[in-house]
């Protein structure tokens, strides 16, 4: 063996490579097991392109006349649900986010409690939240708004808590040294530093909520989804296509708006 061999450079250690290999192998095994046991009728898969083509054919021509009479109001309702729901989420997420930031609240039990709320909020899908709140409040936009609010707490609260944990500790130390009460320290030390991230999160979540509030109507929580559901059940495919197109346009516009505002803030 030459001396040079002992200087051989390796990107990853043996155990790192073993771990990576184990991950890929695990995924491959899981995939093959899934493929064998999942119940798929192959004929349906082969038939899919024809069926999809047929769907598109039935969607054409689009019934644009339906927009002013049936869609516009529902679309506005969707936007209001998204916005009001996001505002609701913020009101609820700020205290929960503060509880979850371990550099502000030093009680692990409270941190943990906050994390539990945040994880539950994120784990339950918006449609499931919508079902729950339709059961509570009855069908309509109130259920949708509360659903969007609860669904967003997890996202907003988690990112807000992270922003709070990342603030520069120097000013906090200075305010502590001046004898300021904790709420003043929060207002003048933490908040100014975390505010840009907070508004960024708000915009980001609003963008997501526009998408989500467009579908929660499928289970009765108000907005454009309810109109879509009706059109689907009645097989009015040329109305479905207009509804889908208007959702697409609104979602794209919302994204453009958010990008433009974020550029101006940052």
């Amino acid at each position: 063996m030459s001396q040079a061999a002992s200087y051989k450079w390796e990107r990853f250690t043996f155990s790192e490579r073993l771990a990576r290999f184990a991950v890929f192998l695990g995924f491959a095994i899981a995939l093959s097991l899934s493929m064998r046991s999942v119940q798929i009728i192959p004929e349906f898969l082969y038939d899919a392109p024809t069926q999809v083509a047929d769907l598109f054919k039935r969607m054409w021509p689009m019934d644009f006349a339906y927009y002013p009479e049936g869609i516009h109001h529902a679309m506005m309702e969707t936007l209001h649900i998204a916005t009001l729901g996001t505002l609701l989420a913020i009101v609820m997420a700020i205290p929960i986010g503060v509880l979850g930031a371990n550099n502000i609240v030093h009680f692990p039990l409270l941190n943990w409690f906050s994390k539990l709320i945040l994880v539950s909020s994120r784990s339950v899908n918006s449609l499931v939240w919508a079902l729950l709140f339709v059961a509570v409040f009855g069908p309509g936009p109130l259920a949708g708004t509360v659903c969007i609010g609860f669904r967003s707490i997890g996202f907003v609260g988690k990112l807000f808590a992270e922003a709070l944990e990342e603030v520069d500790p120097g000013p906090i130390e200075a305010l502590t040294a001046s004898g300021a009460p904790w709420f003043s320290i929060f207002l003048k030390g933490y908040w100014p530093q975390a505010a840009p991230a907070f508004w960024g999160v708000f915009l980001f979540r609003w963008d997501i909520n526009v998408r989500e509030s467009a579908v929660i109507g499928l289970v009765g929580a108000g907005g454009i989804g309810m109109v879509l559901d009706t059109a689907l059940n009645l097989f009015f495919w040329n109305r479905v296509s207009v509804i889908l197109l208007s959702i697409f346009v609104v979602v794209i516009l919302a994204e453009l708006l958010v990008t433009a505002i974020r550029k101006r803030i940052i």
Binding site: G170, L175, S178, G179
Partner: peptide, 25 residues
């Protein structure tokens, strides 16, 4: 009173508000 090496001002607040931070207690 305490003065710090890295100044420890709240950068996003105005100078006036930083000075008044001394009154927060």
């Amino acid at each position: 009173g305490m003065v710090f090496q890295e100044f420890n001002l709240v950068e996003r607040l105005s100078v006036m508000e930083n000075v008044l931070c001394g009154r927060l207690g």
